Amino acid sequence: MLPPRILRRLVLAPLVIVMTVFMLVTLPFWLVVTAAASLRLPPPQRRGLRFVWFGTAWLTLESAVLIACLWLWVAGGARRQERHYALIRWFLSEVYAAAVRIFQLTLEIQEPEPTAEERAARLTRPVIVLARHAGPGDSFLLIYHLLAIYGRRPRIVMKAALQYDPSLDVVINRLPNAFVPRESGQQRVVEEIRRLAATMGDQDALVIFPEGGNFTPRRRRLAIRRLEEKGLAEEAERARGMDHLLPPRPKGAITALEACPTADVIFVAHTGLDDLITLGDVWRKLPVSAHITAKWWRVPAAEVPRERDERVRWLYDHWEQIDAWIDAQRRARAPADHPAPGPG
């Protein structure tokens, strides 16, 4: 059960600031202890120092956001959306910069050069972003690029439990987003998607993850079984042909298209840290350097199918395209991951 908002503001938010001060004061101690513990490990497994450094940077940025939000509230700017979008942009850019320095993160985006008409349309139409859901921080990277590079104002439906993060709780609740409790079910998610899509302006972007969660082989098997139990034989067969994705749940995407028919659609694929799902995975497997490759496809509103059945097939078409792209990226990366043995 999520604590009431007033309790989160009076307890969780100050606690983050206290923890930040504690970490900054005791940082030399933690660095020495972590460095000593890492000496017994081979270099690729010496992740402790990087995690301590990144955790301290994250806490510092969280505290800065909370203090800025408090100042906006005192100064009467709590309802000024542009200031909060700027605050999110600053926070995510600093987190991204920290990840680049500490984890040697590199991000490559493959996107066709837009025509003059497409470039103009980017500034005059809302967009619905349908993204793959896999790996750590994919939502943060996606939102950062929508804000920083494409000048969009993202909207997203999130799990209510994410409000345990005080800065996320404060900032996101002041903007047109939605937190949905787990027990509310899929219908509540769809209703919030409809509400957010129906009120979008030209600079807004609604972000949806049609898979509903991170990919695992078990989730893939269960999703295919559910399709078969519902009598959706064609969708189940197409889902069996995708090795890297969960079958998309079309209801949310179709609801968004119906609520905002003038929106262009952007499909987002990415790969590189797919196997890092839990914190344990990140701790055990995080490579010395992290590289993420992403690809974006844009579909103008005029080219989006109008009938529901056509939209479902169209969504699966693009999901198969994303799956094939991920497979090609992994095959291209395999020789570098497993170099051939030298002579002799």
Rank of each mutant, 00 (worst) to 15 (best):
L142Q: 01
G272H: 09
D327L: 13
P343S: 12
A13C: 11
G185Q: 06
A197K: 06
A178C: 03
P166R: 04
R182N: 07
D243R: 15
Y150A: 10
I172C: 12
W296N: 01
R225V: 02
V100Q: 15
A99D: 11
V11I: 15
R225F: 09
I326M: 14
R152P: 04
L12Y: 15
V207K: 02
P166G: 03
L175W: 09
R83E: 11
E258I: 07
E235Q: 15
G213T: 15
R219C: 02
A178V: 02
V11R: 00
I143F: 14
H244A: 03
G55E: 04
P339G: 05
A294V: 02
E307S: 12
M200V: 04
R153A: 09
M1N: 08
P341F: 08
I156A: 11
W71H: 09
Y96A: 09
L168I: 13
P343D: 12
L72I: 00
G252T: 05
V32E: 01
T20R: 09
M242V: 05
A290T: 11
L105T: 07
R194T: 09
A121N: 11
L279Y: 06
I67C: 11
R79Q: 13
L39M: 13
L7S: 04
I156Q: 09
P43G: 09
A233P: 00
F51N: 06
L15M: 14
T34C: 14
G342M: 06
P28R: 03
R5Y: 11
F140Q: 04
H133D: 03
K159L: 13
K251D: 13
R333T: 03
E229K: 14
G137E: 04
D202S: 14
H244F: 15
P3C: 06
R219I: 02
P261I: 08
P305D: 07
V180S: 10
P250N: 05
A36S: 05
A236Y: 03
A269E: 06
I266P: 00
V299D: 02
W53A: 13
V282N: 01
R221V: 08
P339R: 03
P287F: 06
T293M: 05
A98E: 07
W319K: 06
E117I: 12
R284N: 11
